[in-house]
Simulated scan of single mutants.
Amino acid sequence: MTDASLNASETGLGEYDAGFGDYFALLKPRVMSLVVFTAFVGLVAAPGGVHPVVGFAAILFIAVGGGASGALNMWWDADIDRVMKRTANRPIPAGRITESEAFAFGIALAGISVVMLGLAANLVAAGLLAFTIFFYVVVYSMWLKRWTPQNIVIGGAAGAFPPMIGWAVVTGGIAPESVLMFLLIFMWTPPHFWALALFMKSDYETAGVPMLTVTHGRKSTRKHILVYTVLLTPVALALGFTSIGGPIYLVVAVLLNLAFLKGAWDIWRRDETMAQADAYRTEKRVFALSLFYLFGHFLAILAQAMLAPYGFGGW
């Protein structure tokens, strides 16, 4: 990144004309895809169902709300994004979009998404979406992320709300099933991100972000990964004994949790003298497995819901 682009992004004078792709990148599309998928599963698994048009509109506005969170997060984190290799080419630090433009874009999307979800579905779903945006931007990004190594533990709640929102779109409320879906993502988030932090430690050190790897070291982080993975397992299995669980989900959950526990064990027990390349290979493998882990659980919930009319549903 040139000095000109850095100065441009700081003063509000963009060096480049932003294109559609730059604004789309502000929405964090990879994160948004997880938001959309888990919200959709929550909506489909909820009892009763909604008209397809309402369901489509609800998922669209939940996606827009997730994108708003991403844009506002990039606005707030522009200073540390500039010094991290992983984020230096994002639209703001690269000088393609100014901070003020990103802020206005995020606020507009947040307002639109909450109001339209309330109109399309109900006030409970809209309220949960508004709280999710607030939690991610204010509680996590502005407060926790730069203050405590427990940032990702508490802040992980922001990414755990989408299935609850999808459930509320249909039912207008909260139920044990939606809370367990929330807890599944909430408990999964720390080992998922700490596995990433183990091989991205230098980025967080450079940016001054108190990630657990920076404040407590790699050995403590690996121990935390194992502990949280152990605590995650009963939450994942408990879902199998609710109205949205069933034999398909339980089989998938048992296999995935055994694999994830094995990965966490491999990270915890590895030799400190292991070559860095070999260590990173283990940590990257577990990080990749963690992505498949969450996708697999929600895909199993979706399969149970869609097969229910054919006699293969839950209990």
Score class of each variant (00 low, 15 high):
155 G>T: 01
155 G>H: 03
157 A>I: 10
157 A>C: 07
158 A>M: 01
158 A>K: 00
158 A>C: 07
158 A>V: 05
159 G>S: 06
160 A>K: 10
161 F>R: 00
162 P>T: 13
162 P>I: 12
163 P>A: 08
164 M>L: 13
164 M>E: 01
165 I>H: 05
166 G>C: 06
167 W>M: 04
167 W>H: 03
170 V>Q: 01
173 G>F: 02
173 G>N: 01
174 I>H: 05
175 A>H: 13
176 P>K: 06
176 P>D: 07
177 E>Q: 13
177 E>Y: 05
177 E>I: 07
178 S>L: 08
179 V>C: 10
181 M>V: 09
181 M>N: 07
182 F>G: 05
185 I>E: 10
186 F>D: 01
187 M>H: 03
188 W>G: 13
188 W>H: 12
191 P>Q: 07
193 F>M: 13
194 W>I: 12
195 A>K: 10
195 A>W: 07
195 A>L: 11
195 A>I: 10
199 F>E: 07
199 F>W: 13
200 M>G: 00
201 K>I: 08
202 S>A: 14
203 D>S: 06
203 D>G: 04
203 D>H: 03
205 E>N: 02
206 T>F: 01
207 A>W: 08
210 P>L: 01
211 M>A: 09
211 M>P: 08
212 L>N: 02
212 L>S: 11
213 T>V: 15
214 V>P: 06
214 V>N: 07
216 H>T: 06
217 G>Y: 08
217 G>E: 11
218 R>L: 12
220 S>A: 15
221 T>P: 10
221 T>A: 15
221 T>S: 15
222 R>G: 03
222 R>M: 14
223 K>E: 15
224 H>E: 14
224 H>P: 00
224 H>F: 11
225 I>S: 08
225 I>R: 11
228 Y>D: 02
229 T>V: 09
229 T>W: 02
231 L>H: 02
231 L>A: 13
232 L>S: 10
232 L>M: 14
233 T>N: 02
233 T>D: 04
235 V>M: 09
236 A>G: 15
239 L>F: 04
240 G>V: 11
241 F>N: 10
241 F>K: 12
241 F>M: 12
241 F>E: 11
242 T>N: 09
243 S>R: 15
244 I>A: 12
244 I>S: 06
244 I>G: 04
245 G>Y: 05
246 G>N: 05
246 G>A: 07
248 I>G: 01
248 I>C: 05
250 L>D: 13
250 L>M: 15
254 V>H: 01
255 L>K: 00
256 L>T: 02
257 N>C: 14
257 N>D: 14
261 L>T: 00
263 G>P: 12
265 W>M: 12
266 D>H: 09
267 I>P: 00
268 W>N: 15
268 W>D: 14
269 R>N: 14
269 R>G: 14
